[in-house]
Design a protein around this nucleic acid. Structure first.
Length: 466
RNA sequence: GGCGACAUCGCCAAGUGGUAAGGCCGCAGCCUGCAAAGCUGCUAUCCCCAGUUCGAAUCUGGGUGUCGCCUCCA
């Protein structure tokens, strides 16, 4: 397995801290709203990583956090009148529901910031004791970046503090402009706050991840975890700060490898809260089946930016249709073993920093090859069993192709409509027997008008929803 | 202003030194009552310029263009 390390900016062989084990931490969502396509892409990227490592016989421990204390959540509390607990459990449930619809497997560990306060407090205290962090008069605790000589190695964003374009908040009580908050005091009793030795307040964003990683993973004298992942936007400042805190608190690096997934753009424009063009997963799921969205969102390499648009989505659906049409041809049968060369080619592609394009091309070639062979000999039992095994392998690795194939082509068609289609097809069949092709074609037009395509095969007439 | 990414067929997209994968679209053919599906064939010299090399889409330098981060963000 080779992965691209976005800090070292090069592809490296994956050599875990403990042989055959892989510890992975992903920065999860702040739960104050529904998941958008960016969350989906990040989840899917690391879902693919996890599935690939598992098939390579690594014992994977995946940890993905929920940030459930944050300014935006507090804002939501004020707006809605609901409690923090009500809001965060609601959106955590919603997140899980949406990700499952996309075929993303749950993480093994899913810690919440509110469940990690002891670890957070203890890490901050360690930093204060070492004079790397300092408490200011208000009760806020800041991290002194000048105490960490290595600060900047993650993002290479050290730069010049006098830099006039910098948007870092300058406040008189900070030692350095780039110092960031580890702990924010609460200004009123009514605010969400937790009592600590330094002040009543709540954790800053960056410290949560550092504390949770230390809480849930052991590591060795050099690193705590193997892979730390997240969206490309988190590289700076979030991961820079996180790495620095962990380094200063533990004396070693937090992660051996860093992986960052690319962004989702909508019709060429960055999707973001501030642009107001966020595209929620739940809205996309109203129009497209989760598997079709998944197939589309994984079809482009995780490091590339993703330009979401309907035309490309429909193209990628056609590619998935091909897989399911082949599955139709080999169903029902019992799967044997996947074809060795096919298996090796796919795993080799995915082992190369998740080269999904090559994996998908290999699948396309397998589909064409098998269709060709089945045209020659439609009753090739051995080929059918192997092909089904190939498809089951694809489902295990990529999470696509797992549905019953006839059901796949009938998603969203109710039983009344199904009955009507079947009856029209029966009528058309008898018209065909009578060689009344005008009538048969008229019936086909009628079915087509319902958004259904039909095709005559040696096994009889079958239909698909368009 | 600082840091960084990318630029390959109409569209999406692989390919990091040896003469351009795959999908969609299009054209031709086989199959079909006709279609659809399936199969076969056809369709690019890789943003520009210069250099390194026997040889470059792939390396170096210089341009041009697009995008991202530096503020909450996946």
């Amino acid at each position: 397995m080779h992965i691209y390390d976005s800090v070292k900016k090069t592809k490296l062989p994956f050599e875990p801290i403990i042989p055959r084990k892989a510890s992975i931490y992903i920065c999860g969502p702040t739960v104050y709203d529904d998941a958008h396509l960016g969350h989906a892409r990040s989840s899917l990227s690391f879902d693919l990583l996890s599935r690939t490592l598992k098939l390579l016989h690594y014992q994977v421990t995946m940890c993905k956090n929920f940030t459930d204390i944050d300014d935006k959540i507090i804002k939501k509390i004020k707006e809605s009148g609901h409690t923090l607990e009500e809001i965060t459990t609601h959106y955590i449930d919603r997140y899980r529901e949406d990700m499952r619809a996309l075929g993303v497997r749950d993480a093994d560990i899913e810690p919440k910031a509110t469940d990690s306060l002891e670890a957070i407090e203890s890490m901050i205290q360690t930093l204060i004791d070492r004079d790397i962090a300092y408490v200011v008069e208000s009760g806020d605790v800041y991290f002194d970046v000048s105490k960490d000589r290595e600060y900047g190695i993650i993002s290479k964003m050290v730069g010049d503090d006098r830099d006039n374009q910098s948007r870092v908040e300058h406040t008189y009580f900070k030692r350095n402009p780039k110092d960031f908050a580890l702990w924010k005091h609460c200004s009123r009793e009514s605010d969400i706050c937790f009592d600590t030795a330094f002040s009543k307040g709540r954790p800053g964003w960056h410290i949560e991840c550092s504390a949770m990683i230390e809480k849930h993973f052991v590591g060795n004298s050099e690193y705590t975890i193997d892979i730390h992942g997240g969206g490309a936007d988190l590289l700076f400042p979030h991961h820079e700060n996180e790495a620095s805190q962990s380094r200063c608190a533990t004396g070693h690096e937090v992660a051996k490898y860093w992986m960052h997934n690319g962004f989702v753009n909508i019709d060429g424009e960055k999707m973001s809260k501030s642009l107001g063009n966020s595209f929620f997963v739940k809205d996309a799921l109203k129009v497209y089946d989760g598997e079709i969205l998944r197939n589309y969102l994984i079809s482009i390499h995780y490091r590339n930016d993703f330009n979401f648009n309907e035309e490309d989505l429909l193209n990628s659906k056609k590619r998935l249709d091909r897989l399911y049409r082949l599955k139709k041809r080999v169903t029902p049968t019992k799967a044997s073993k996947p074809n060795r060369a096919f298996y090796k080619a796919i795993m080799s592609a995915m082992s190369d920093d998740l080269n999904i394009s090559v994996a998908l091309a290999t699948i396309d070639e397998m589909i064409s090859y098998t269709n060709d062979k089945l045209d020659e000999n439609p009753k090739d039992k051995g080929l059918k069993k192997e092909t089904l095994a190939n498809i089951e392998f694809i489902d295990e690795l990529l999470g696509i192709g797992g549905k019953e194939p006839f059901a796949y082509f009938q998603i969203g068609v109710d039983s009344d409509t199904k009955a009507k289609i079947e009856s029209l097809i029966a009528k058309r069949d008898s018209a065909k027997v009578d060689r009344d092709y005008k009538k048969a074609d008229a019936i086909r037009e009628e079915i087509l008008a319902m958004g259904i395509a039909i095709m005559d095969t040696s096994e009889g007439t079958i239909w698909e929803k368009l």
